[in-house]
């Protein structure tokens, strides 16, 4: 429902789950943030072929549910594919989950969970 001010007032960071190139580029843009020690939580996760799906899942849950300072979560589409269920079931307005293309995987609008909803709403 219409979110009250408190739910998004403190949200000021972007988070990213992506392959190394995407994360590097986005960090260069200056979105990287590490919280104060002792937690020292990073707001980014680099995923490569060796990363376990459970770890991606955990990071996704952490960014979407536990951390209250993240406004937008960027996730590479091919990684979102790996945790498609979690991405599709997450329907809260905050944080906004955004699927972005990566260097090796061009953007496919058919797989995007939001665009899928758009298509469903317009009965296509």
């Amino acid at each position: 429902m219409a979110a009250s001010a408190a739910t998004y007032k403190d949200r000021q960071f972007l988070a990213v789950i992506g392959d190394e190139d995407s994360v590097t580029g986005l960090l260069l843009a200056g979105i990287g943030h590490v919280t104060e020690p002792p937690e020292s939580q990073r707001n980014f996760l680099v995923v490569d072929s060796k990363t376990e799906t459970s770890e991606i899942e955990r990071a996704f849950q952490n960014f979407t549910q536990e951390r209250k300072d993240i406004a937008v979560l960027l996730i590479n589409q091919h990684i979102a594919e790996r945790i498609r269920h979690s991405v599709d079931t997450f329907t809260d307005p905050f944080p906004a989950v955004l699927e972005i293309p990566s260097k090796d995987h061009p953007y496919d609008p058919e797989k995007d969970s939001v665009l899928k909803r758009v298509r469903r709403l317009f009965g296509e």
Partner: peptide, 21 residues
């Protein structure tokens, strides 16, 4: 590869968002 270096040196977000209504 500068990826590792950049990941390690990221401390404070320069690029932030604020929400308006």
């Amino acid at each position: 590869d500068i990826g590792y270096q950049i990941q390690e040196s990221a401390k404070q977000a320069r690029f932030r968002v604020r929400a308006k209504q």
